[in-house]
């Protein structure tokens, strides 16, 4: 079963950290990616650029209007995702819980099952 782990955190929190702390976070991420690669669970993942580089597209009066900045003015922004293929929802949550943003309380991970193209007749 595939799960997308959506990473939400407060933009800029990394800049405020001491260098040692920052390196520790990157080290933890490397460690998790290595573990997921070796177990054959990692399907993919990407980090997103700072929210200030976002452009939001919406329909205004039937025409697409493009504005700078994210759609939601929330404290936490979507920062990236991991895609894993693992045995159970519990395992997906366990991976999410090990992510540094969660462990340090600076962000949350949403665990979302990915829809399958296959199905059985009912």
């Amino acid at each position: 079963m595939k799960y997308m782990l959506l990473i939400w955190n407060r933009p800029g929190f990394v800049e405020e950290l001491a260098e040692q702390e920052r390196n520790a976070i990157f080290g933890e991420v490397d460690e998790i990616m290595k573990e997921l690669t070796e177990s054959g669970e990692l399907v993919g993942g990407q980090a997103l650029a700072d929210p200030s580089q976002t452009r939001t597209v919406r329909s205004v009066g039937g025409r697409a209007e493009i504005t700078d900045g994210p759609f939601m003015e929330s404290k936490e922004q979507f920062a990236g995702y991991l895609m894993v293929d693992c045995d159970s929802p519990e395992r997906a949550a366990e991976i999410a819980a090990s992510w540094p943003d969660v462990r340090r309380g600076v962000g949350v991970l949403e665990v979302r099952p990915v829809m399958d193209e296959a199905g059985t007749e009912m």
Binding site: M1, P113, V114, M115, D116, E117, A118, G119, T120, E121, M122
Partner: peptide, 11 residues
């Protein structure tokens, strides 16, 4: 509740 696209569509 389903994670299958065709099942969701059917339901």
């Amino acid at each position: 509740g389903t994670t299958s696209l065709p099942e969701r569509r059917y339901l």
